[in-house]
Design a protein around this nucleic acid. Structure first.
Lengths: 228, 228
DNA sequence: CGTCGCACCTGACAAGTGTCAGGTTTTCCA
DNA sequence: TGGAAAACCTGACACTTGTCAGGTGCGACG
């Protein structure tokens, strides 16, 4: 019975799932109890995230992850397909988080002040996706090519949508390319802010968040006020 | 004679050299010809940089580096002390580059327009230190603790100096903390711009550089115009 | 022409890696 | 309480890694 464990592992998908925009996660049918699977996977992913950020993806061994999560070296393969599958799950959790309002949607809330909206975006991204950004940009080399492409596309789409919303908000020229740059800069400010954490300066994050929002708002205003 | 190769390798320094601010590089005395050492080291470092960015530090093997640089697997240890020594040399070359005018110095050129100065800073950093930033932020986990500390200090010092120059430029309050945040934001815009390259959008870098400079200038102006 | 020393290389070792076959223990219901 | 099914674990394999001991080749110099 245990012999045909292989048949319990769903095909490792070569393509990234495009239905919901997230990366495909391998399906494993050795352990049946879904709740248990869920719990163990959380243990594994939590430990893995810590370790990946501490030591890097490649230098983190399955043994490390098992030791920290308390899962057995062999059992871990009852819950994840392989080391890379752990990374995919983490990226899905951290990068494709459904609980962070996307920038385009926020920009679409026309009743709110721009700086206010930006501050919320920066804060949310900082708090909830901070570690994700670190993980993503450090593990780019270890992602499967298709996954890399999927993440890039997601980001590009986000920027395009944000640019469109900006144009709408300010009722300005359809063809002004500066709004794409602005959108790019917004996403970029939000994404990389947390990466500065290694500097460990004594200032509280809130200050930088506020400053970023003010900066971004000032910049957008400047572009809007300057005819092309 | 070849037997006491060990005695030809200088002690691997535990501490980062603080004299010139760079990281200590191991001294090796097996190969005598200094020009040859220089050449080989360049070959090795060039190949290593490419590979570290492609595959990550940990996944790049000495064999990979040898294959791409054309140096023999054993001979490579006549030119570098170990894998980490290669990383240190790269960080020295890319992060501590002497040919990029530091931000504080540029800000001190009071006869030049602020936006103009910023644009030069962003462009120089982008072009000359772009790969360095990528390397640094990806290899943080693989740097020796002391090296990490040295790099962090360098960055902090830079920000403090830049903040001081900003205060001087605008003849504003000695104690206004917002200028440190501004300086932080400047360094940060310059550093991470190149990291967006993985997005591979079709826009030329010059556009983003210009936009960043405009954004930064607008932001600083806004702070200056707003009393504390 | 010999030989001496510098640069180069073959081959290997010990340690560590991802993965899993297959056995052992626990759980739980008849 | 018996026993099948589910979950867990021991132990190992095939392979890769950083590093280097020790030998080879070759050019310069007397």
């Amino acid at each position: 019975m245990a012999g045909d464990k292989n048949s319990g592992i769903g095909d490792l998908p070569k393509n990234s799932g495009s239905d919901n925009g997230t990366l495909n996660e391998a399906d494993i049918r050795v352990v049946q109890n879904e709740d248990l699977k869920q719990t163990r996977r959380e243990q594994i992913c939590d430990a893995a995230l810590e370790l990946f950020l501490e030591k890097g993806f490649a230098s983190t061994t399955i043994r490390d992850i098992c030791a920290r999560s308390g899962v057995n070296q062999a059992s871990i393969y009852d819950y994840i397909a392989n080391k890379n599958d752990i990374l995919r799950r983490l990226l899905n959790q951290l990068w494709f988080r459904p609980d962070v309002t996307p920038l385009p949607e926020l920009l679409g809330q026309l009743d709110r002040d721009l700086e206010d909206v930006l501050r919320e975006y920066f804060r949310e991204t900082w708090e909830k996706k901070g570690k994700g950004a670190l993980l993503v940009y450090r593990t780019v080399p270890h992602m499967l090519p298709d996954d890399r492409k999927a993440m890039r596309q997601r980001e590009s789409q986000l920027i395009d949508d944000a640019a469109a919303q900006l144009r709408k908000r300010f009722k300005l020229g359809e063809n002004d390319p500066r709004f794409e740059i602005l959108a790019n800069l917004l996403v970029y400010l939000a994404t990389f802010g947390p990466m500065r954490s290694w500097l460990q300066r004594d200032r509280p994050p809130e200050e930088l968040i506020k400053a970023s929002a003010t900066a971004a708002a000032a910049m957008i205003q400047q572009v809007v006020d300057t005819p092309i």
